[in-house]
Simulated assay, not measured.
Amino acid sequence: MNMLSRVGLGALLAAVSIGTALAQSFAQPNDPSAPKTRAQVRADLIEWLDAGYDPLDWINYPENAQRAGRIVAERRAQHAGQTTTQ
């Protein structure tokens, strides 16, 4: 088997395995106790940063995190309320 066909075979196997993993992730129900994906964790971090959380603010740490947590919870509640009323 020459080098080009090995690279092609590797790319094909990678594409199939990624497609299978995506299909399995979409097929699973939304379970809040299930571990989060890397993309979900990044989205949560961005949401917290948008709410004013500063991970480098060690002086105001508990208050900073609690305030941002309340803001994130309020935004999620608003978003959940908007999607159910439409």
Rank of each mutant, 00 (worst) to 15 (best):
A77K: 13
R6F: 07
P62Y: 09
A34K: 14
G69R: 11
L45Q: 13
S33I: 05
N60H: 15
I59K: 15
W48C: 08
A39R: 03
D50N: 14
L12R: 04
S25Q: 13
E74N: 12
R42P: 00
P35F: 03
L12C: 04
L13E: 00
A65W: 09
N2F: 14
S5H: 12
D54P: 05
R76K: 15
E63G: 14
D50C: 01
Q78G: 06
Q82F: 02
A39E: 06
L49P: 00
N64C: 06
T85Q: 10
L56I: 02
Y53G: 05
L45A: 13
S5I: 15
R76Y: 02
T20V: 10
W58N: 11
Q78V: 10
A34V: 05
R67A: 11
A39S: 04
A65R: 14
Y53P: 05
N2K: 15
Q24L: 14
E74L: 09
P55M: 05
A73Y: 06
A68L: 08
A80F: 05
A68D: 06
A65M: 12
R38F: 03
N2M: 13
R70F: 04
L22N: 10
G19Q: 02
F26H: 10
A51N: 08
R70Y: 07
A51Q: 09
D50P: 00
T85M: 04
A34H: 09
A80W: 00
Q78R: 09
G52S: 07
G8P: 00
G81A: 12
A23E: 02
A34Y: 06
